[in-house]
Write a protein that binds this DNA or RNA. Structure first.
Length: 502
RNA sequence: GUCCCCGUAGCUCAGCCUGGAUAGAGCACUGGCCUCCGGAGCCAGGAGCACAGGUUCAAAUCCUGUCGGGGACACCA
């Protein structure tokens, strides 16, 4: 039997629509079924009141006393409030960012970084054994081009066709010269990848994004490639023609895995990499956070996994859609392919990490979005980040203000619409975390946080906390403590600061 | 041509997976609220499910089609 939340508070807290659905099969009026079912549920009266509404809803309204009784345990649970163990014993990897180390991160990469990071935080809070990984393409044509581009800069030659020419190339060249690095493309590639990787980690650190492991693509080619190739061949899935090696697909459209020039394709690396994740490292589940432009890759990788005897359902791909940036009247579309756009560093300098994170989380990952820079950088009420942070700071302030009060809290007197509403909202928190984990939808946290902040501000406005009335003051302080815990945990899971003062 | 995402208020977006009872928020706009814990706040106001069919007692939500925006369909990465 499905119990859902009501959409309209006047109907109570929970509702059951089962009678409506059963009416046809039972061939009885839904209202009759509802009455019988409601009687059979027999909820303890201290928990809630059950009513039946036409044409066949069963509604449950929580008792104020039950709501009030939850406050102490919320406040005491502190950072544990909202955590669960639904993922206990499940090993899951979240792979995200994984931008090529051929240049500093662009703002468009940041969306994947935030979505991946918060997804990992949510899964960890839900008891999953989470590993966060960054896949580094440290070989291949782009990497050779990076080395050649640095070399060109060092010995003052034109940048090679399709090479890199940003300011950072000059910086790397200067540093390489200063350190007397030999101007060979291979050496410079290595030096450049390291330099860029360091720079990427700096940017990510400012966003408070960390990985447990950097996984090098090159490590896949120390035998694992041959082993996998042999396995595929034994399954009759490898073909040679047109000078290349192909994966034989059920779709009839074969995929190149080794090019005519002898180099492997990205597809082949992806196959090796994902087989490594499941087979070698034993992840039960893998979440890949990819840019929308990699959408075409999903089907092929899934098929190859299936062929190799790995259930493709264990791989979930979170496609993060494109971001455009709006500055004043101007809108810039960020394109990864074109390689042009605003750098992450620039945006961090301009709007700060909290706004970057919160704004990305206010959109579901699979929707294209527009990032309004002017709004994000505004240090005022229009900015949703401050709205949430201010709610936290207000509670911190009132708790300090009332710190001296000691009395037995009169919980039963927390019965105004604002107090009850605040309790109802914050009691949803564990469900929000669980649902966000199951659906892998980090944006749910931001929407919840916004609602919670609104409830906090309304409570604060309408219910003066610290007064001469000590028992009531004690009760409202407890409510404040529980609410501060909840919004603090929500901001924490999003990686957004929860300041006590602003 | 095939596949994927999107189309909800003037603008930016939730809600759709798992169909229910008056469809939400922020920004913008208009008008109110500071004797008292922080006004980065609160209260009030208008306006919307792209279109057309279908399924259902019930459709923003599921199915089909059309239109519109974006992305993907390489021996690129």
């Amino acid at each position: 039997m499905l119990v859902e939340r009501t959409q309209n508070p006047t109907h109570g807290d929970y509702s059951v629509t089962l009678p409506l659905k059963l009416a046809r099969t039972l061939r009885r009026p839904p209202i009759t079924i509802a009455n019988e079912l409601a009687a059979a549920m027999a909820l303890p009266p201290s928990f809630g009141r059950t009513t039946v509404a036409a044409p066949g809803f069963i509604n449950v309204t929580l008792e104020p006393a039950w709501l009030q009784a939850q406050l102490a345990s919320i406040a005491d649970a502190a950072e544990r409030w909202g955590r669960s163990e639904i993922g206990r014993g499940v090993k899951v990897q979240v792979e995200f960012v994984s931008a090529n180390p051929t240049g500093p991160l662009l703002f468009s990469h940041a969306r994947g970084a935030v979505v991946g990071d918060v997804t990992a935080r949510i899964l960890a809070a839900s008891g999953f054994d989470v590993q966060r990984e960054y896949y580094v393409n440290d070989r291949g044509r782009q990497i050779r081009l990076l080395g050649e581009s640095i070399q060109a800069r060092m010995i003052d030659r034109p940048v090679p066709e399709g090479g890199y020419s940003g300011d950072y190339i000059a910086e790397i060249a200067t540093e390489a010269t200063a350190r007397a690095i030999s101007p060979e493309p291979v050496t410079l590639s290595e030096f450049g990848v390291e330099w860029v990787q360091r720079r990427i980690q700096e940017d990510l650190a400012r966003l408070d994004v960390r990985h447990d492991q950097l996984f090098l693509e090159s490590s896949l080619y120390a035998g694992w490639d041959q082993e996998t190739m042999a396995k595929l061949a034994s399954l009759g899935r490898v073909a040679q023609h047109d000078g290349a090696t192909w994966f034989k697909s059920d779709s009839g459209k074969d995929e190149v895995i080794i090019k005519r020039d002898g180099y492997p394709t990205y597809f082949w690396s992806d196959v090796l990499y994902h087989r490594d994740k499941f087979e070698k490292r034993g992840f039960d589940r893998v979440v890949d956070v990819w840019g929308a432009d990699h959408q075409g890759q999903i089907g092929r990788v899934r098929e190859a996994l299936g062929v190799l005897g790995i259930d493709p359902q264990r791989l979930a791909v979170l496609l993060v859609q494109l971001v455009s940036v709006k500055r004043g009247e101007e809108t810039v579309r960020m394109s990864r392919r074109a390689g042009v756009g605003i750098s992450l560093k620039e945006m961090l300098d301009e709007v700060g990490p909290d706004a970057v994170r919160y704004f990305f989380l206010l959109r579901s990952a699979d929707a294209q979005m527009e990032f309004d820079v002017d709004l994000a950088r505004r240090q005022s009420s229009e900015n949703p980040v401050y709205y949430a942070q201010y709610a936290h700071a207000r509670l911190a302030n009132v708790l300090t203000f009332g710190a001296g009060v000691s009395a037995q809290p009169a919980l039963g007197r927390l019965d105004s619409e604002w107090e009850l509403e605040l309790m109802r909202v914050m009691l949803r928190w564990p469900d929000v975390v669980r649902e966000a984990a199951e659906a892998r939808e980090p944006h749910r946290l931001a929407f919840f946080t916004d609602e919670l902040a609104a409830a906090i501000h309304r409570f604060y406005k309408n219910c003066r906390v610290v007064t001469e009335d000590a028992p009531l003051t004690a009760a409202r302080l407890l409510l404040s403590r529980a609410a501060k815990t909840t919004i603090g945990n929500a901001l924490g899971l999003m990686g957004v600061a929860a300041p006590d003062r602003m």
